[in-house]
Design a protein around this nucleic acid. Sequence first.
DNA 1: AGTAGCAAGTTGCCGTGGCAACTACTTCTC
DNA 2: GAGAAGTAGTTGCCACGGCAACTTGCTACT
Lengths: 184, 184
Amino acid sequence: MHNTVAAATIPEAFVRLVAMDRSVPRMDAAESRAWLALVSTAELLPAALDAQLQADSQLTHFEFIALTVLKDAEHNTLRMKELAAATNATLPRLSKVATRLESRGLVERQARSDDGRAIDVRLTTAGRRALVLATPGHIETVRRLVIDHLAPEQLDALADALEPLVQRLDPQARWGPKRISGRR
Amino acid sequence: MHNTVAAATIPEAFVRLVAMDRSVPRMDAAESRAWLALVSTAELLPAALDAQLQADSQLTHFEFIALTVLKDAEHNTLRMKELAAATNATLPRLSKVATRLESRGLVERQARSDDGRAIDVRLTTAGRRALVLATPGHIETVRRLVIDHLAPEQLDALADALEPLVQRLDPQARWGPKRISGRR
DNA sequence: AGTAGCAAGTTGCCGTGGCAACTACTTCTC
DNA sequence: GAGAAGTAGTTGCCACGGCAACTTGCTACT
């Protein structure tokens, strides 16, 4: 009645044959397990981070990252373009976020004198304070959810496995340690 | 002039002291590296999957997953509630997605006779065809982006590290090996 | 049997992100 | 040095997800 019946009648040997045919891509059990874990993590982790930061500090994870990058920048200031690159955001997205953060007094925007198109974003004192208040809870969450459950070798293995993936996903190398120039 | 200067004058010994104070949660270099890789992956991977599926098959990653779950279900049919659980979606979200998929003829909805509140979603022939067309390209992408770059031990290590994390992120165990009530 | 409470789905509203179009400014080229 | 081309940033429109409110149907309690 249903095609599942047809599938159930396919001989096991034929299934194995097809599984070896790389022109019809398949995944074996170990591959599927790793993929399922990874894709589930990728789906669930951002929501968990957003939920905690939003509840405790009224910040999205992206806003938190943006503020953190600004804090570590010289003079707490970056150009929109630079901040967008450092946070892996498009310029339109960052522009809207900057508008929100500015309306809450956490950052300030100021036109640059040396390039009339460019805008500097600076972390304000209030922004720094908000970040200082938000950071411990966020790190605690990261530890509780992830870090504290992994042995040192696992931490290294995870980083070793995922760093090349990030490079592949992010050809512009916007994320990661700021060795934009030296990579490749 | 700026507080970066103040930070630079903090004695190194004091920095080490603070780093050991667990009441102010910190992360060491290995932890930060793993966390950065993981959070970057979690940010970038869903967009990459959506982009490929959308470009090649006009499907979001979530729609692809929903169709796949339906294909593996008995009679290609699940209740909305079950499908939502199996795909880690809220019912409102799934309801909207089902509306979209139904308008494209990929699924059908039908009220259940045994429970007037419940709705069955069934994969149509057209839906199965769309899925069959979409799957090879998707698996190829998953291989190209992730799987083919990991050694077998890395696959296992990744799964071992992330599976407990998924459990923690998803207390309802909606995701993962399908031991949802009804099926299996 | 009747009502109170619960469960399944749908809809509406809102917030956020992507992309394309637009403005304003700078740089390149002849 | 003027127009063409490119760059920085903003805005508008659309798609999607979350949550709350709503509808409908079931269940439990008396």
